[in-house]
C-alpha cells in the first residue's frame, strides 16, 4: 500500500518553529532528548528561548512552571515515561495545582517505542495524567493532528499533556484540520459497533474496519484525540446507535482511553464494552509493529477481536 507515513515529532518541531516566529512568549525546555524529541530544531532557531535542563526531568517540570508564572507559554518535552512517572510530583504540584501555562508534549508514548523495551514503554502515562485535576490529556494520531494540536494548545491557557508516538504514522487528516479541546473525530460511519481509538491505533482500527466490512460487519470509528475531556456527546451519539463498544489504545487497558470510556458508559449508557490495549503487563523489546502484532493490536488482531466480540450477541 502506498500510504505516506510521516513523523509526529517532525510535525511538533514545525509547529514549535511557527509558534516561535509568531510569539515571543513561547519558550521550550527539554531534558537531554532534544535531538530525539526534535525540540532541538526550535533551539537552533531560537537559542535564547530554549533551555536544555540536562537529564533532570523533575527540575525541568518545576522550572517550566516558574517560567510560565512569569508570563511565558512553556513547552516541556521528553519521553512519555519520564514526563509522567519520573516527574509526577513536580507536574502535579508545580504545573497542575498551580494551573501553570505549561504544555507537556511527550514523545515515545506506548509500546510503539519498540526495541528499547519495557523501561521505556509508557503504558501508564495517559492514566497518570488523566487522574490529575486541571490536566487535559490529548493524543495525536498522525502528522497533521500533531501539528494542529500543538498550535491549538498554545492558544489555550493552562496545563496540557499531549502524547506523541516515536514511530512515523500514516496520514489520516488533511492539512489545516481543526481540533477542538474535548473533541473527537468520526472517521467512519457504521451500524454494528463503535470502535474508539487513540494514537497509532487509529490507523490500525481504520484498516480493521475495512477488513470487517468485507465480512459484513459495519464498524463506526472514532478518533478520541481528546482523552480528557472526553468527547462525550460524540461517543454517546454513536453508541446509542450501535449499542456495542470497543476501545483500542497503545496503553494499558486500565485507566487510559478504555478506562475513560468505561466510566462514561457505565454512568450514562451501560452497554457491552471490550477494551483492547496492553493487558496489565509489562511488554518487551521488539520492532514497534511487531509488538502491536504480538499484543493483538495490529489491524488483523483488532478485526479478530471485534468479530469475536460481536459473535457473542
Amino acid at each position: 500500500m502506498g500510504v505516506t507515513k510521516r513523523s509526529p515529532r517532525e510535525a511538533y518541531a514545525k509547529a514549535l518553529i511557527k509558534l516561535g516566529e509568531e510569539r515571543n512568549d513561547v519558550v521550550v525546555l527539554d531534558a537531554d532528548l532534544s535531538t530525539s524529541t526534535q525540540t532541538a530544531k526550535f533551539g537552533a532557531r531560537f537559542p535564547d528561548r530554549f533551555f536544555n535542563m540536562g537529564i533532570a526531568e523533575a527540575n525541568m517540570m518545576a522550572t517550566a512552571s516558574g517560567l510560565a508564572l512569569s508570563g511565558k507559554t512553556v513547552f516541556a518535552s521528553t519521553f512519555a515515561v519520564f514526563a509522567t512517572s519520573r516527574a509526577y510530583d513536580q507536574v502535579r504540584v508545580a504545573v497542575a495545582y498551580a494551573m501553570a501555562n505549561v504544555k507537556i508534549v511527550a514523545t515515545h508514548g506506548g509500546v510503539t517505542v519498540g526495541e528499547d523495551g519495557a523501561t521505556h514503554h509508557a503504558i501508564e502515562d495517559i492514566a497518570l495524567m488523566r487522574v490529575m485535576p486541571n490536566m487535559r490529556v490529548l493524543a495525536s494520531c498522525d502528522y497533521e493532528s500533531t501539528y494542529n494540536l500543538v498550535l491549538r494548545i498554545a492558544e489555550e491557557s493552562g496545563p496540557f499533556y499531549l502524547r506523541l508516538t516515536r514511530v512515523s504514522l500514516p496520514d489520516i487528516y488533511p492539512q489545516g484540520e481543526r481540533f477542538e479541546i474535548g473533541g473527537g473525530k468520526l472517521l467512519k460511519e457504521g451500524r454494528d459497533v463503535t470502535i474508539i481509538a487513540e494514537g497509532p491505533l487509529v490507523h490500525e482500527v481504520l484498516t480493521a474496519a475495512s477488513m470487517l466490512e468485507n465480512i459484513g460487519i459495519s464498524a463506526e470509528v472514532i478518533d478520541s484525540y481528546s482523552i480528557k475531556p472526553l468527547p462525550e456527546e460524540l461517543i454517546l451519539d454513536s453508541v446509542s446507535k450501535t449499542k456495542k463498544v470497543i476501545t483500542a489504545e497503545d496503553h494499558s487497558i486500565i485507566g487510559g482511553l478504555g478506562g475513560a470510556v468505561a466510566e462514561l458508559l457505565s454512568e450514562k449508557m451501560p452497554c457491552p464494552l471490550k477494551r483492547l490495549g496492553v493487558r496489565d503487563t509489562f511488554c518487551c523489546s521488539g520492532e514497534a509493529y511487531a509488538l502491536l502484532r504480538h499484543l493483538g493490536l495490529d489491524s488483523e488482531g483488532i478485526a479478530r477481536e471485534v468479530k469475536n466480540f460481536l459473535d457473542k450477541f
Binding site: 512552571s65 516558574g66 510560565a68 510530583d89 513536580q90
Partner: peptide, 11 residues
C-alpha cells in the same frame, strides 16, 4: 519543588 519554580522565574 519551589526551588525549581523560583529558578524558572529567575530564568
Amino acid at each position: 519543588i519551589g526551588f525549581a519554580i523560583a529558578q524558572g522565574m529567575a530564568m
